[in-house]
């Protein structure tokens, strides 16, 4: 099972070696898509985590026990449907194909499962319909 999560670290655990134990103790494979780590400040990692369903559950539980708040990435990325005009401008810049044009309807499909929360679409969208918050 593979999912993308945002791991929020606070000022007490941002500098602790934590995520390596997902590999060592839980046999999980992860891929860091984005990292913002600031000394003595709240920090976050966007990670794709892959592995056995039971191990994944235990791994996430371990993270939470370490004081790391774990959210699915979809909680942090949102499309304001009232502002989206389905023009397609965002598809020029979306690196993962999460934003793509469906044919022949020409609607822009947003697939949160493919999104890495990189945030490039936020300014690329002329009506500013995409919202990414951490």
């Amino acid at each position: 099972m593979k999912n993308t999560y945002v791991l929020h670290f606070d000022t007490t655990n941002y500098d602790k070696p934590i995520v390596y134990r997902l590999i060592r103790d839980y046999d999980l494979v992860f891929n860091i898509l984005k990292a913002v780590i600031l000394p003595k400040q709240e920090s976050y990692l966007v990670m794709e985590i892959d592995g056995d369903v039971r191990q994944l559950e235990l791994g996430l539980h371990y993270l939470q026990n370490q004081g790391v708040q774990v959210d699915p990435v979809t909680k942090n990325v949102h499309r304001n449907e009232e502002r989206c005009t389905h023009c397609g401008a965002c598809t020029a810049i979306c690196p993962t194909g999460a934003l793509a044009i469906e044919r022949p309807s020409m609607f822009v499909r947003f697939d949160p499962d493919k999104c890495s929360a990189c945030g490039l679409c936020v300014t690329a969208c002329p009506p500013r319909a995409m919202e990414v918050s951490f």
Binding site: H86, G88, A89, M106, P126
Partner: peptide, 10 residues
């Protein structure tokens, strides 16, 4: 790749 800027659905 070709990218539209004008909304065809609208």
């Amino acid at each position: 790749p070709a990218v539209p800027l004008s909304s065809y659905s609208r």
